[in-house]
Design a protein around this nucleic acid. Structure first.
Lengths: 164, 164
DNA sequence: CACAATTCAATTGGGCACAACTAAATGATG
DNA sequence: CATCATTTAGTTGTGCCCAATTGAATTGTG
């Protein structure tokens, strides 16, 4: 049982999202160091993970895996292309689609990336099962938040509709 | 007991930081909707929280509370100033320091912000104790990651020293 | 007092994230 | 077949985040 004085609701250290943001940026700091050798930023690393796992993909699919849109991916992919890790080629079947393909260099980078997860896992100080549990919790949270955002947006649209 | 095949270490869905990032961005989506009424972005809201809680502060102290540096805060504070929520005044005692002060309007905004934490808490689908537990877990994670990053940086500096 | 080291805010540059929009290609419908 | 809606990338604008640098003010030391 816990009760929180109403006046404390706005306290910074009670905001779950602040802890989340802080943890996210702390991860960023560790990844920055660990990925420097590979010449990748963290989001670029995520893109490479998806390509290593699924092979060549159109930008759209890539974005679905990563929950990112073209506004984020387009410039990011250009940088990966400039670094020689991927090529971008218009699909012959559907000219709207751009296929992202690993170069030999990009494929080869996987070997050097294999050590990254272990180093990161070590940095967290958590064991595999603890990480798994936390991951599950966070995924659950994300799902609830996405649903809530959709609801809010729907409510807003309805309100706007009545207003107009 | 769980064993993970070495080949799976690079799978996207095993990366704790991906879940973390996703949750962080999902929060962003909810906050975007909820804070639109107040005319604040999420980081701006965090700054206001600190000011409401601690009163006027120099930029430096603000950054310590939020783990943000001047490169992030300077333009953000200018936007808050342009919105009429804060004033920035050079300290008389120490001319290097800039005091961030709430305007009446900024102080008044607190009343309207009081509802925000409840709406966010509802959106998570977690109860107060679950949130508290997750927060503790994340803070623990952040601490471990910061320590690891400091270690990595120190090791790197030592290596560079030997190299030079 | 003079001078070096430190502190603090601001700026610059690179990269990420999202919203809104454009443009091109495709698909569906009458 | 012509037209309209949808799909897909890309672009632009706003804002956040960090690293590195600058410049001014302050503090410590001889």
């Amino acid at each position: 049982m816990t009760t929180t004085p109403a006046a404390d609701w706005l306290r910074l250290d009670q905001q779950i999202c602040f802890s989340l943001n802080a943890a996210s940026r702390a991860f960023g700091g560790v990844y920055r160091v660990v990925l420097k050798d590979l010449g990748l930023t963290y989001p670029q690393y995520l893109v490479m993970l998806v390509l290593w796992e699924h092979g060549d993909l159109p930008v759209k699919k890539l974005g679905e895996h990563l929950r990112l849109d073209s506004g984020t991916l387009s410039p990011l992919l250009k940088r990966l292309e400039a670094a020689g890790l991927v090529r971008r080629e218009r699909s012959a079947r559907d000219e709207r689609s751009v296929e992202v393909r690993l170069t030999e260099e990009g494929t080869a980078l996987r070997e050097r990336a294999l050590q990254v997860p272990r180093r990161i896992a070590t940095a967290t100080g958590f064991d595999v099962d603890e990480i798994r549990a936390l991951r599950a919790r966070l995924d659950q949270l994300t799902e609830a938040l996405d649903a809530a955002a959709a609801e809010e947006a729907a409510a807003e649209a309805a309100a706007a509709g009545r207003g107009a």
